[in-house]
Computed example of a mutant assay.
Amino acid sequence: MLVTTTEKIPGQEYEVIGECFGVTTQSRNLVSNLGAGFKNIVGGEIRGYTKMLTTSRQEAIKRLTDEAASMGADAVVMMRFDSSSIASDMQSVVAYGTAVKFTEKN
């Protein structure tokens, strides 16, 4: 399924089906949290959290495309991410956009 951050897909006409979402909330384990605490003292990238956010974004996009497919969509346009912390060790990521159905295939 095509997912784009743009409003228009070159060479395609489509009708809007509706909004669609993909949501995930993840947390790191205790060992990763301890490592992050030590890293906070000396500075630098906290790779465990970077990996968690990368995985969260990938899962949110998968859930977004699954929902769009269940709506009969061919693509999702205007895709965006939103994220927030739920607690000090949990992160929620939402991928959202507009599900569309092609009316003319080129």
Rank of each mutant, 00 (worst) to 15 (best):
M1N: 07
M1C: 13
V3D: 00
T4F: 08
T6C: 12
E7C: 05
E7F: 11
P10M: 02
P10V: 01
P10A: 05
P10Q: 03
G11N: 10
E13T: 05
Y14K: 00
G18Y: 02
E19A: 11
E19C: 03
G22C: 07
G22M: 01
G22Y: 01
T24G: 05
T24E: 07
T25I: 09
T25F: 03
Q26L: 15
Q26K: 12
N29R: 05
L30E: 13
V31C: 04
S32M: 08
N33A: 08
L34A: 09
G37C: 06
K39W: 03
N40V: 06
I41C: 02
I41F: 13
V42Y: 13
G43Y: 05
G44I: 10
I46C: 15
I46P: 08
R47S: 15
G48E: 15
G48M: 02
Y49V: 13
T50I: 12
K51C: 04
M52S: 01
T55H: 08
S56P: 04
E59G: 02
E59Y: 04
A60Q: 01
I61K: 09
I61S: 00
I61L: 13
R63T: 03
D66H: 10
D66N: 12
E67K: 07
A68Y: 02
A68C: 11
A69R: 10
S70H: 10
M71V: 10
A73M: 01
D74Q: 04
A75Q: 00
V76F: 08
V76A: 08
V77K: 05
M78V: 06
M79L: 08
R80I: 11
D82F: 13
D82P: 04
S84K: 12
S85N: 15
A87R: 12
A87M: 13
S88E: 14
S92Q: 13
V93S: 00
A95P: 06
T98M: 11
T98K: 11
V100P: 03
K101G: 11
K101A: 12
F102I: 07
F102R: 06
E104R: 08
E104T: 09
K105C: 10
N106Y: 11
